[in-house]
Amino acid sequence: MEKYQIYQFVEKTKQQDKGQGLFELETERILEINLEEQIWAKMGTMVSYRGQIKFEREGILEHGLGKLFKKALTGEGASLMKATGSGKLYVADQGKKISILQLNGESICVNGNDLLAFEPGIQWDIKMMRRIAGLLAGGLFNVRLEGKGMVAFTSHYEPLTLIVEPGNPVYTDPNATVAWSGDLQPEFVTDVSLKSFFGRGSGESVQMKFEGRGFVVVQPYEEVYFGNKES
Rank of each mutant, 00 (worst) to 15 (best):
E26Q: 06
E158G: 09
G203C: 11
L73P: 02
V164C: 06
V143T: 15
T27C: 05
R144M: 15
K14I: 05
G59P: 00
H156Q: 13
D17Q: 06
P186K: 14
Q16C: 06
E56K: 02
G182K: 01
E11C: 04
K54P: 00
I6W: 09
H156E: 13
E28P: 08
D93S: 07
K97G: 10
K148S: 09
N104I: 06
P220C: 04
K54W: 00
Q102V: 07
E32T: 13
D173E: 11
A176M: 05
Y49G: 01
T177R: 03
G199T: 11
F226Q: 03
G112C: 15
L31Q: 02
N34P: 10
Y90W: 04
V151E: 04
G87H: 03
E37P: 00
R131G: 10
E58M: 05
G95F: 05
P159C: 04
G138K: 00
Q20W: 03
Q102E: 09
S86N: 07
E158H: 02
K3N: 12
D17Y: 02
Y171M: 06
L25T: 00
Y225P: 12
V164T: 15
S193M: 05
P186E: 15
N34F: 14
L35G: 04
K229R: 15
V91K: 00
P166S: 10
V218C: 09
V224G: 14
E62H: 04
N168R: 12
R131V: 04
I126R: 11
L68Y: 00
L25I: 00
F188I: 10
L35C: 06
G19W: 03
Y4I: 15
S205V: 11
W124D: 03
L101P: 08
L184Q: 14
S107R: 03
F198H: 13
G147Q: 06
I108T: 13
N34G: 09
A179L: 08
G139L: 00
I122S: 06
T45Y: 02
E2V: 07
G44L: 01
E11L: 07
A117T: 07
V189G: 04
M81E: 03
W180V: 09
E106G: 09
L194T: 15
G75Y: 00
N168L: 07
M81H: 04
G77A: 12
V91H: 02
K82V: 01
K42N: 10
K42Y: 02
E187Q: 14
R200Y: 15
P174W: 04
H63G: 07
L184I: 13
E32Q: 11
K82I: 00
I30M: 05
P220Q: 14
F141Y: 14
S202A: 14
T177L: 10
F198D: 14
G19T: 09
M1A: 14
L116K: 00
F215R: 14
Y221T: 13
Q207E: 06
G167P: 01
D173A: 12
G75N: 08
R144A: 15
G121N: 13
G66F: 03
D93E: 08
G51F: 01
P169D: 11
G51L: 01
A78Q: 11
M1G: 12
Q185W: 06
K97L: 10
L140N: 05
A72W: 08
A133R: 14
P174M: 01
E230V: 15
L35M: 02
T84I: 01
G203V: 07
E11M: 03
I60N: 09
V189F: 00
W124T: 04
L184C: 12
K14D: 11
V10S: 13
